[in-house]
Amino acid sequence: MNSKKMQSNLMLLLTAFIWGVAFVAQSVGMDYVGPFTFNSVRNFIGAFVLLLFIPLLDKVNRQSAATVNASNSDAASATDIASTSSSSVSDKKTLIIGGIVCGILLAIASSFQQVGIVYTTVGKAGFITAMYIVIVPILGLFVGKKVRLIAWISVGLSVIGLYLLCMTESLSLGKGDILVLICAFCFSFHIMVVDYFSPKVDGVRMSCIQFFTCGIICGIPAMLTESPNLHAILTAWQPLLYAGVLSCAIGYTLQIVAQKNTDPVIASLLMSLESAFSLLAGWIILHQYLSPKELFGCLLMFAAIMLSQIPEKKSVAA
């Protein structure tokens, strides 16, 4: 494995840890503010933090470009400059579209998740959210992609695991579990869009645009239904800062940047570890315990996630 891939994989592992612990911050934040207020503020925090880092990253990139150019003695022609200018305009348009689309999907997914966390435990929310790993290959059916047998086996295992984890004695899913399950479907679309746009644009800038978009969208229902006030927001400063700075600014940006240089299968596998981290964080920090039946459900779901990431064997030409 080359150093770039190793670095990207470590970034994704760190992302999974940050996101797993973020479920605790999201749960604690609900003691002070409403879910839409929490999401709006955390995304604006993430966006402003990235705005501070963009000039520094630009400086580093310019220095790297200058070093490369110094080793090349040929001057750029007028045609090359015109081509670069045209490409820059096109890239800017793609960047804005990508950031807005990602922001819309992030707003929908995170809103379902945040409201769902009010009615379920951190560990359950983490494992149900991680279902996007199993859902993404199935969604590929709608764009003409073939679904392997192993993916269907993973779906079957995850459904059984979901039943054991979430089904109540009255044979119904809890309200919070249903909302987080919808969130998992929404995050599946978000991941597919990130995969499409991240190789084409600057990852940090796209992440910044998506946070501003998400913050604005979540701010509308927050103002209409929750009447947010500054005192409540300041009281929730700890979970908001963790969710805003670490989960948003650092976590989602690490995801976008790292996905450029690693295998999508490995990326999905590493990010899915957030479910295990969320279970541990809920147990250690919030003392939320699961029954043996629920833990077995988690085990089945985790097995389904791992199984779905087994790469397809390549046929060897005779």
Rank of each mutant, 00 (worst) to 15 (best):
residue 11 M to Q: 12
residue 9 N to I: 04
residue 180 V to T: 14
residue 114 Q to D: 06
residue 318 A to R: 12
residue 180 V to G: 13
residue 30 M to P: 05
residue 64 S to Y: 14
residue 71 S to N: 10
residue 258 A to C: 03
residue 37 T to C: 12
residue 301 M to A: 12
residue 230 L to E: 03
residue 17 F to N: 00
residue 15 T to Y: 01
residue 284 I to A: 03
residue 8 S to P: 06
residue 226 E to H: 10
residue 30 M to H: 09
residue 290 L to R: 01
residue 75 A to M: 14
residue 120 T to C: 07
residue 192 M to E: 06
residue 29 G to D: 00
residue 215 G to H: 13
residue 305 I to W: 04
residue 243 A to H: 10
residue 55 P to R: 04
residue 107 A to P: 05
residue 277 F to H: 10
residue 3 S to P: 05
residue 83 S to I: 08
residue 312 E to L: 12
residue 91 D to W: 02
residue 268 S to P: 04
residue 230 L to F: 08
residue 175 K to E: 14
residue 32 Y to Q: 06
residue 73 S to N: 08
residue 252 Y to G: 03
residue 143 V to A: 07
residue 196 Y to K: 11
residue 85 S to D: 11
residue 146 K to R: 11
residue 39 N to S: 10
residue 230 L to C: 02
residue 29 G to S: 01
residue 87 S to H: 14
residue 87 S to L: 15
residue 48 F to I: 08
residue 257 V to C: 08
residue 287 H to P: 00
residue 20 G to P: 01
residue 270 L to P: 03
residue 26 Q to H: 11
residue 205 R to D: 03
residue 77 S to L: 09
residue 294 E to G: 00
residue 77 S to I: 07
residue 103 G to F: 02
residue 19 W to I: 00
residue 84 T to V: 08
residue 222 A to Y: 08
residue 172 S to W: 06
residue 282 G to C: 04
residue 228 P to V: 05
residue 307 L to I: 13
residue 146 K to Y: 07
residue 194 V to W: 00
residue 79 T to D: 15
residue 308 S to M: 12
residue 2 N to S: 15
residue 59 K to D: 10
residue 130 A to N: 02
residue 232 A to L: 06
residue 107 A to Y: 05
residue 236 A to N: 08
residue 224 L to T: 10
residue 141 L to W: 05
residue 223 M to A: 14
residue 289 Y to L: 02
residue 49 V to E: 00
residue 89 V to Q: 11
residue 208 C to G: 09
residue 154 S to P: 07
residue 56 L to D: 07
residue 231 H to S: 15
residue 98 G to W: 02
residue 200 K to V: 01
residue 269 L to G: 02
residue 256 I to V: 15
residue 277 F to L: 09
residue 22 A to Q: 06
residue 107 A to M: 07
residue 125 A to D: 09
residue 106 L to W: 02
residue 16 A to T: 00
residue 260 K to D: 01
residue 12 L to E: 01
residue 68 V to Q: 14
residue 63 Q to N: 15
residue 54 I to P: 09
residue 296 F to M: 09
